[in-house]
Amino acid sequence: MKPCDFQLFNEYSGRLVDDRDVALLAAIEDGLPFSRRPYAEIGERLQMTEGQVINRLEWMTACGVIRRFGLVLQHRPLGYRANAMVVWDVPDDNVDEAARHIVDHDFVTLCYCRKRSAPQWPFNLYCMIHGRERAEVEEQIKDLKTSASLISYPSRTLFSRRRFKQTGAKFSSAQMPAGSAI
């Protein structure tokens, strides 16, 4: 499996991670401790050696379960307050092409295809733009929406207002039953 394969992993049979890996992800869900030997400290909680912790984290990174390992920022206090989700209703056959056009733009942070929930929500292609100023983000969205690849598709823009919660996924509440497939 390629680390950057765009397909969802749950389309593959078999499980990439075992129960111990889930326990490891749960142990670091609130972050590594800021101490000199953080992996040894995590290992102690899990009865794993420092080397085992490092090996499993390397493995999960290599196979793409961990898509990045590092600092996770709170973008709002850092000045990224204009956060827009832009959605389009694109015929299924044209989604890949439209997405390729969207991700060519540096200001796009994320781009996803999701299932529709018609009739209430016919949209299937999403992108996120995080910017400092709303006016600037609105210009970027206008450029995207009026580009030749996207202009013919119905779209909608949803700026975020209040943030009620932002944390990482909590694996301690998502511990897998033993032996289950993902």
Partner: peptide
């Protein structure tokens, strides 16, 4: 790092996990 965390500028230092690999 302690200071960045205390000031609410970083959430954590850790793993960002790909959706639908470990959890649904």
């Amino acid at each position: 790092l302690e200071s960045l965390k205390a000031r609410g500028l970083i959430t954590r230092l850790g793993a960002v996990v790909r959706p639908n690999t470990v959890a649904a």
